[in-house]
Each structure stands twice: as C-alpha cells, then as structure tokens.
Amino acid sequence: MLFGYPSHDLPADDISRRLNDLRVVVNAFGHQHDDPSAVCDDRVTGDIELVFYNGGIAIVEIESMILRPRRDQAIVIPPFAHHSIGTDPADPHDNYYLHFDVEPLYRREEIVSLLTASGTHFIVSPSSPDRLRGVYEAIASLIAARPPGYLAAVTGLASAIVAELVGDATASRPAVAEERARGTYDERADRVIRFLSDAIGQAVDIDSIAAACGMSRTTLHAVVRGSFETTPMRLLSFLRLRRAEQLLRSTALSVKEIAATVGFRSPYHFSSEFSNRYRVSPSAFRSANRRV
C-alpha cells in the first residue's frame, strides 16, 4: 500500500501479467481548475494522456469525435491524436492530467487498446472515482513538496492509476480485453527499439540497423511493419522526435542543441519535422508544456 492506495488486484490472467511487465514513465502532470483559459486547440503530443474530471463543463474533440466527459470520468488521448479541449467560462472544467509512456515502448499501443476496450471510445468510467481522485491528489502533493525520492513515488502512483483504469475499461468486455492483451507483438521489435533508442544521435541506415539487430533487411522491414505499421527509418524519426519532446520539457538546451543531440542534420530540418508532427514549433511546444 502506497499513500493509502491499495495495489490493484487484477485477476491472474494475461492482462495482469502484461501490466506487471510494463514500466510507466511519467512525462507531465497537472491540475487545471477555476481557469477558463485552460484549453487547447488542435494539440498533438507524442505520449498517452489521461484526463480525470472532477467537475465543470468540458468539451473534448479527439480526431473529429466530440465527447462531453462528466465528473468522475477519465478521457484517454492516444499518442499523436489531434485533440482540442474546451470549457464553459461560466463553469470551468476541473481536471487532473497525466502524460505518460510505457517501457518497452513498442507495447504502448497495446495499453491504449486496453484503456479503450470498454467500447465507449475514449471515455473510461472508474469503478472507484473517489479512490482514484485520492491518488491524483497524492501525486499533486508529492510534486508540490518534492521530498527525497518523490519521483519514484509519483511513478508508483501513476502506475496504479493506469492499472486501475485498465481494469475498469476491460471489466465489462473481458473477451475483447483478452484478445487485445494477447496482441500480435513480435519480441524482436523490442530489440529494434532498443538499438534505435541508443542510436538516436547517430547516423544510421537500413543496413546498419539490420546488422545490429541480427536480421536481414527483409526481416527488419517485416518486424517493424508488423509491430509499428511503419518503416524502420520512420520509426527512427519518431523516436528522435519523442526524445526531442522530452528534452524540450525537461532541459534548458537550445533548439539547435536538441536538434544535434537527437540526430538531425540541421535545426531547420528538425523544426520542420517537429512542426509537421506536433502542429506547433519546438519553441512553442516548450512554452506550453512543463515536466514533472
């Protein structure tokens, strides 16, 4: 038990085993309340976002789908989903937001699938909203006080939130959840991700990636296509932008320094790629986001 929050007691099935194998990485956390300006328009981020609503009026649009979350409901915003969040100035929304990733990274889509397994699109209705609210409040208190070791405690509490919401989302449709948990993931994809993550700042090509991962070019393309629905070089570009996003959130490095660190030939190329993906410049992204 951590800060009064019991460990999530999922059944001993394939879903719980897979959750136990994952590590949650917290990128950002915050509490928005009594602020009519706390809105966003056509925003894109590279991680998973969970928004838990305490009250007020919220209008959320995710990939052209309009949602009206109520108090005690959570919204799941997948990576790179275009979304807008609005409110009524007369009754501003009150919510906690949590940005996170999972390791290994190639299983991130699996977690999004489990969080949305209830069939209610991007909305999850927690079975114990007051308990979940208490966990969010505990995270907020830790971040405000920043005691020694607080980041580890925040990670543990964030993991509990993810487990709780996955359990609630999958409880009503266990057959769908089990199917999504099993997935079709190729373990060789983890080998590719690890190499590309280590090689983010290096000049690599298809041949060097294939050789480092112990695969032929054909096998490499098949593994990456099967697990990520993209090509190896596009996957590398994605990882570079994700690393750049983390550096923009958490360091004072200049945009030029970040571009070089993550392997872009020029800051202009980096800014163009980042803006195309996130619909905002690196500098504007840094201004609008803050790290835990």
Score class of each variant (00 low, 15 high):
residue 107 R to L: 12
residue 92 P to A: 01
residue 87 T to F: 06
residue 117 A to H: 13
residue 122 F to C: 03
residue 97 Y to F: 15
residue 103 E to G: 06
residue 109 E to Q: 13
residue 127 S to A: 13
residue 89 P to V: 05
residue 121 H to S: 11
residue 129 P to A: 08
residue 91 D to S: 11
residue 102 V to Y: 01
residue 103 E to W: 15
residue 96 Y to P: 05
residue 124 V to M: 06
residue 90 A to I: 09
residue 102 V to P: 01
residue 115 L to V: 06
residue 128 S to K: 13
residue 109 E to P: 01
residue 98 L to D: 05
residue 127 S to C: 08
residue 101 D to R: 12
residue 105 L to W: 02
residue 102 V to L: 07
residue 104 P to R: 01
residue 105 L to A: 02
residue 99 H to M: 15
residue 116 T to F: 01
residue 129 P to G: 10
residue 111 I to Q: 00
residue 124 V to P: 05
residue 88 D to E: 14
residue 127 S to K: 08
residue 95 N to E: 10
residue 111 I to G: 01
residue 99 H to D: 15
residue 91 D to C: 08
residue 105 L to V: 02
residue 108 R to D: 07
residue 104 P to D: 06
residue 124 V to G: 06
residue 126 P to F: 09
residue 120 T to F: 07
residue 103 E to F: 15
residue 127 S to M: 12
residue 122 F to K: 05
residue 87 T to V: 09
residue 112 V to D: 02
residue 99 H to G: 15
residue 125 S to D: 05
residue 112 V to A: 05
residue 88 D to F: 13
residue 122 F to T: 04
residue 110 E to G: 02
residue 113 S to A: 15
residue 125 S to A: 10
residue 93 H to Y: 04
residue 95 N to F: 11
residue 121 H to F: 13
residue 115 L to M: 10
residue 120 T to W: 08
residue 119 G to F: 05
residue 107 R to N: 10
residue 117 A to G: 09
residue 129 P to M: 10
residue 127 S to T: 09
residue 99 H to Q: 14
residue 98 L to S: 03
residue 104 P to G: 07
residue 121 H to E: 10
residue 94 D to N: 12
residue 123 I to W: 02
residue 88 D to A: 11
residue 113 S to T: 00
residue 111 I to A: 02
residue 121 H to K: 09
residue 121 H to L: 06
residue 98 L to W: 06
residue 116 T to K: 12
residue 118 S to T: 05
residue 91 D to F: 14
residue 87 T to R: 12
residue 90 A to G: 03
residue 96 Y to D: 04
residue 106 Y to K: 00
residue 89 P to T: 06
residue 126 P to D: 05
residue 125 S to M: 09
residue 106 Y to I: 09
residue 111 I to K: 00
residue 129 P to Y: 09
residue 125 S to N: 10
residue 124 V to F: 04
residue 111 I to N: 00
residue 126 P to A: 07
residue 128 S to I: 07
residue 127 S to Y: 00
residue 122 F to Q: 04
residue 126 P to L: 13
residue 104 P to C: 03
residue 93 H to R: 11
residue 117 A to D: 08
residue 109 E to A: 03
residue 87 T to M: 04
residue 102 V to I: 14
residue 106 Y to R: 05
residue 107 R to Q: 07
residue 98 L to H: 05
residue 100 F to Q: 06
residue 105 L to M: 02
residue 122 F to W: 09
residue 116 T to P: 02
residue 122 F to L: 01
residue 109 E to F: 12
residue 128 S to N: 15
residue 90 A to Q: 14
residue 101 D to N: 14
residue 119 G to P: 05
residue 102 V to C: 00
